[in-house]
Design a protein around this nucleic acid. Structure first.
Lengths: 231, 231
DNA sequence: TGTACATCAGTGAACGCGCGTTCACTGATGTAC
DNA sequence: TGTACATCAGTGAACGCGCGTTCACTGATGTAC
């Protein structure tokens, strides 16, 4: 790569990083201005246009990078379980929280903009969640404990639930790390970790005892699903 | 109430309603301007100050109203189950989606601003979620199917999970109602409904087969929780 | 009931500010010979 | 290797616009007598 290309690439990535930093400080993406991002990187506002058409395009490119990170973390967790299926739930949750704490920014951006002010970004994130759900589904298919769940619809519902829960756990954990008092932070973090483990285990019990009452038809518009009493 | 007070109250509520309407059209609260809200209501910008100090104060008052609505919907669902414990899961989910579809705005505001651009609003929403979780906990305590879950920590983890899942279901459902093609909307809505029922049932299996391995101590910072293998 | 004064929701002009975007430019880097 | 020209990331002035906020105001409604 030439000197010129190299320097351009640096500015380009710096603009993306500055935006992610602002986002993870609690700013809504749709309130972050082009001028602000350029200034943070030491560029004049008009230089922004050498890299992106507008903030929306920057947002989409940032989403790409963020999604790759999330996918990496989730895949790594999945791999760990495939190779050591007897790992404790608590250890798994701790690994997850460790990854989230080390790189909280992508999680914050992803969750905050999932229902944020930019329609294009929302659509992009929904798309990425579909991909992540597929990933998790395929990992579940390989796992021993979930082998008896055969319906792909059941597996998808489970995968979707795991993704949603992961996002909630991640945000809860990040939020707790902002507690100033270190003693209080320690206590609350432990309570939260325990609760997350309990939630995961509740789900595991459900999987373990899963046996689906077969539906009459494959047409989802007619399907009545199962019908056990709700609590 | 005097004529003057009455008219003031109308403008006051109109400002709140206009803001909620903008929010539920996908706008981030932190991008909604005082001038815009005043204009939507047919007031001059400066008249806004007769009602609220700034947009943040309006946001907090709006959150109060929104939280009352959500609490009402969840309580009504809980009551329905207390009086008819054998209702099908599917019927319960359908009642929930019906309530959400009839009044989607509060759900959109609540979920979008949960991780939105206003720190004060985020704190307020976190507070309301704690209250909602307590509510659900107390309803669970009264229910037959969850009687064998005794630890209040387990109950809280379950309640928290139910709240989080409800918010996800609500947003997923609202999102689907924006699908323009009526045939596609019907199909996708049915798939989504089926998946939500499956998720609820998976959780119910977990509850049904719940028996907690006792922890050694009550101190959550030392507690090791349970430790069954994670999938 | 009628009058004189007080209250106060809503008005309209004005302000300084940060915004996105345009345009002609500069000067370091790249390329052709 | 040296020179002459092309490319293009970054500059700086300028623009019109919507923003929050101030201020003195208006006139319908409320209150005291």
């Amino acid at each position: 790569m030439s000197l010129r290309e190299d320097r351009k690439q640096q500015s380009h990535q710096a603009l993306l990083d500055a935006t992610l930093a602002l986002s993870s400080q609690g700013r809504a993406f749709s309130t972050i201005s082009l001028r602000e991002v350029a200034h943070a990187v030491g560029l004049v506002p008009t230089a922004f246009y050498r890299h992106f058409q507008d903030m929306e395009q920057l947002g989409l490119e940032l989403l790409d990078q963020v999604a790759i990170h999330l996918k990496g973390v989730l895949n790594q967790l999945g791999q760990a379980y495939l190779y050591q299926p007897n790992t404790r739930t608590k250890t798994g949750i701790e690994l997850f929280f460790q990854a989230v704490e080390y790189h909280p920014e992508p999680w914050i951006f992803f969750v905050a903009e999932r229902w944020g002010g930019s329609a294009v970004l929302r659509a992009g994130i929904e798309r990425e969640i579909r991909f992540l759900t597929e990933d998790v589904m395929h990992e579940l298919e390989k796992m021993q404990a979930a082998q008896h769940i055969q319906s792909s619809q059941d597996l998808q519902a489970l995968a979707q639930m795991l993704i949603d829960l992961s996002l909630n756990w991640a945000m809860g954990w990040i939020h707790l790390q902002h507690q100033a008092d270190p003693e209080l932070r320690r206590t609350q973090s432990n309570v939260f970790k325990t609760q997350s483990v309990l939630q995961m285990q509740l789900l595991l019990r459900g999987i373990l005892h899963w046996h689906r009452i077969p539906t009459k038809t494959a047409d989802p518009s007619i399907s009545t699903a199962t019908s056990t009493p709700l609590i």
